[in-house]
Design a protein around this nucleic acid. Structure first.
Lengths: 209, 209, 209, 209
DNA sequence: GATGAATGAGGGTTCATTCAT
DNA sequence: GATGAATGAACCCTCATTCAT
């Protein structure tokens, strides 16, 4: 046991351990005991810092949302040409899911539970208006410049971008089995990355003539 | 208790109850007791017919795979013009996920568990070669006819088609919350259906000039 | 563990063990583990037979109520002269509390919890109308015969009869300490029994002239 | 948090909070956390002032004993005619239990624990010799004046007086349920007060010839 | 005097599974 | 084929108490 007397670090360690556990086993399958052990703390402390398992789950989810949105903002897409901005967002989103599979399982758990945690969160919706605004801006500029077709809704587009990578990665075990194909080899991943970009960018092209 | 003395019906009732339970609560959250109750049978019978919970889960998953693949075959896409065939597949896939949300949760569960059930299944891979062949045929015909661009992998394409609908529907609770938008209203669903078709069909168009 | 396959006996053993445990430690202090051990059963069985701790408590309480009321009925007081009937009831009540201290602690627990278990019971009130009727009959006969004063409410009287013994016995530990007197010696008990009878019978006498 | 730096007030606040908590939930059900919160102090302070939960319970109990005995002394019964003195004591005792239900629950808890706290107290027995003396004096005067029958033990009498009110009030929840009667309405309380007085005074009357 | 952080033991309850009939 | 009874391991959570500051 690490009697750290450093509440900030203790909280962070719990959160990290919880994120991993929730990601690996889902909300229901996650074990409070394992989280505590992995965090190097007495189990009681989880309740001291996070009140209960559900609240801990929400905290983990919020932290992951904050992380991806912050990374997105750091792309500074507003200052790029529309097509380039879109390409980068597609690549980033793919990359993020690839590097953070735990985010996908967290989302799956939350949706299995009909979003009952995130519904209680005030922070989460706040994080997302900027994302939509940014995407809307890119679309508008692209439309004005004549490189994107008109009438594309930014939210719908984002869901498509995310969906391209999400389904491939989140369902990689079943897909590998049903299609009898290694989806996680270096080559397969590179191919999918290209496919994603092609799909989205092509789909956005102005309809010819 | 339904003392049916009709093994086939008993099996079917168990499977139906299990599917619903697994879909609603995930593999870990599913309760053998509830399945038995819902099936109107003694709990012991689940073990008699399906050996254990994991095997029952696999049976439910296999049944769902068989169902979607059969419905796909019934579309008879081989006899349609390539663009029309593709459009129908996109629409069907969206519709299927919308009408069978339990299929998505089953897949999520299976992937959370790293596909350890489906890996043991011989039936599941067999069901899918026809799907790939069919899609490959459509792509080839479309390419030949000059309506689709070349070089599109049928598996990648299928994952994109499914991904469009899957991410929207499987994550509808979190998405509704983060984007503060009702995703399940009649209008929203119609819009998404159109968006999906637009995205895929546009993405497949031959690159102009 | 006693794998008795005799549900009736198992239930009875649980109930007996629970009664003792609840009586000794109160509802909150009672340990489900100890009850199971004492009943010679797996802990899980308590939940199988009684759903939860609260329900088990209610079952124990109901059984005790049933027991005292049955013993009362067995006194057959209706066929005795009023004064004799009353004397016997006072003596019986005293004796019952003395022999069944667990009944008092059960009642104390239930009242500490504001009667929230007994409130759900349909059986308990039904057991008591006969008691009141019987007492009312005795009072009426005594009044008619000129040996009891008029205007005594049977419920009030019963509470007085019970109260005489209850306070002495239920609070015997504190009373012994504050009055520095052994309340549980043979002699002390006999004295109290006489005192109770004297008090109640005297209190009921017709007011002289 | 009230950083009072006033030890006496802090102690008093803790004691008040503890009394309420013990009365409401019993010794076992009482929560040290809640007591601290209600007292507006850090939990650690309870241990600073009272060493542990048991000691805090004893302190609360002693305080309540001191309170009722002081209130009794204030009645100044020695200077009243015997019957009047007795009537006043009966009324006072009833009234005290009615106004201080927490005293009854405290006593119940202590007796559930076989008086193990009060046994360690030196103060508590000291408080009670005066009560017995006073009652003995009243009885003797009444006997001498020919208004009370002889041979009544003051301790037994006190237990009867207290018992009349105690059983009614302490068990009010179960009694209300088993007799299907509202025991706490204004009218019911008035009736019981009269009944108590009638019972005790009648019971003490000199046996007519 | 006062605090937030930490602890280990155990609380009631639930689980998938199996036994005896 | 079917049942009710039984199991032990573990689940999340809470408790009174104490440590370091």
């Amino acid at each position: 046991m690490v009697n750290s007397r450093d509440p900030e670090r203790a909280r962070a360690r719990i959160l990290a351990a919880a994120t991993e556990e929730f990601a690996r086993y889902g909300l229901g399958g996650a074990r409070v005991d394992r989280i505590a052990t992995r965090a190097g703390l007495n189990k009681r402390m989880l309740y001291y810092y996070f009140r209960d398992k559900d609240n801990l789950f929400l905290a983990a989810l919020e932290a992951r949302y904050a992380d991806i949105r912050a990374a997105e903002r750091a792309l500074d897409l507003e200052h790029l040409a529309p097509r380039e901005a879109l390409r980068r967002l597609v690549e980033f989103t793919w990359r993020y899911f690839l590097d953070h599979p735990e985010f996908m399982t967290l989302l799956n758990s939350e949706n299995l539970h009909k979003g009952r945690h995130v519904r209680r969160s005030r922070r989460v919706p706040q994080m997302h208006s900027a994302l939509v605004d940014m995407l809307r801006g890119i679309l508008k500029r692209g439309e004005r410049d004549g490189v994107f077709r008109a009438g594309v809704d930014p939210v719908q587009l984002y869901i498509s971008i995310a969906g391209e990578g999400y389904f491939y990665l989140s369902n990689r075990y079943t897909l590998a089995q049903i299609f009898k194909r290694d989806l996680m080899s270096k080559r397969a991943l590179a191919e999918r990355a290209r496919h994603n970009t092609d799909m989205i960018l092509n789909a956005l092209r102005r309809t010819s003539s």
